[in-house]
């Protein structure tokens, strides 16, 4: 049933992007997102789109799959776009009573759509599609390690995140099974009034919760049986290591950011 959700799905492979250290990927894609937020002209967007396209190409993930990750938020883009088109101040294209779309509004709407799409594509292609969730949390843990001095339980938070990520597919599978079982007993999830429909989920939610708690219990036992006792003295199976590839990734992004800054400066110069 949930086969078509591609946001948050790892795409197995061994491309250049797959092999980059997760820390690098996190830093680069977060910075990339920040840069996307700062972009304001078509040329700048083109530059950033080109960088994203290169990243996607290097990742070996089919472009169609990356584009599909934008699909769930299309309604948001359309809605926000429409608001911009009609409510931004500027020269109206035409006027019909109070409805007056403006040129500036259209430009704003386009820019915003580009921004959201680039953030999603950049983020998904550079991180989510090419990094296993486990590696991703490893990376986050390493990057947040300095916060431990401030008594932030970084390891515990990362462990919780790892477990949560690990159990999403398991619970999805479980939900699927329960839905099927209840459907076989005549449950109907799409009929009746809103309240009936809400009630029809009880036969799914309750067994799902019961099994989630059962699993949590079992997992806790299993962890204790293997002497898990938090961060202290814990070694890792996968040591994160930066390589030449990471240097290259930083260099590529640095180049892109430098070009971006030049464009921005240039615009300020000519615009002034």
């Amino acid at each position: 049933m949930n086969q078509n959700i591609s946001l948050g799905q790892y795409f197995p492979g061994n491309s250049l992007v797959h092999r980059i250290d997760p820390r690098t990927k996190i830093i680069v894609s977060l910075s990339y997102m920040a840069v996307v937020l700062a972009a304001g002209s078509p040329l700048e967007f083109a530059l950033l789109a080109a960088f994203a396209a290169c990243a996607v190409a290097a990742s070996g993930v089919p472009a169609s799959m990356v584009l599909r990750s934008v699909k769930p938020i299309i309604p948001l883009i359309v809605f926000a776009g429409a608001i911009n088109v009609f409510f931004a101040k500027g020269r109206p294209i035409f006027r019909l009573w109070v409805i007056a779309p403006t040129y500036e509004g259209c430009a704003l709407a386009l820019m915003m759509s580009a921004r959201i799409s680039l953030i999603l594509i950049g983020g998904s292609a550079m991180m989510i599609f090419t990094t296993t969730p486990i590696l991703l949390t490893d990376g986050v843990e390493r990057l947040l390690k300095p916060l431990k001095r401030l008594r932030v339980p970084v390891h515990e938070l990362a462990m919780m995140m790892t477990i949560a990520l690990r159990f999403i597919p398991t619970l999805m599978e479980e939900a699927d099974k329960i839905i099927k079982a209840q459907a076989s007993r005549g449950a109907d999830f799409n009929e009746g009034k809103l309240l009936d429909r809400a009630r029809s989920f009880i036969p799914i939610i309750i067994p799902l919760f019961v099994s989630a708690f059962r699993r949590a219990d079992e997992l806790a036992n299993a962890m204790e049986a293997r002497c898990y006792r938090g961060d202290e003295g814990r070694t890792r199976m996968r040591e994160l290591r930066m390589t030449r590839l990471d240097a290259m990734a930083f260099a590529a992004f640095g180049l892109c950011a430098a070009l971006f800054a030049l464009l921005k400066l240039g615009r300020a110069w000519w615009g002034a």
Binding site: Q182, G186, P203, P207
Partner: peptide, 25 residues
């Protein structure tokens, strides 16, 4: 259809109500 491990589909307050679920539907 009796699924594998059907015990994980129980949800009602009483066994009676759970057994009756299908036919009350």
């Amino acid at each position: 259809v009796v699924f594998q491990f059907p015990e994980y589909q129980l949800f009602e307050e009483t066994v009676y109500k759970d057994i009756a679920y299908g036919i009350s539907k």
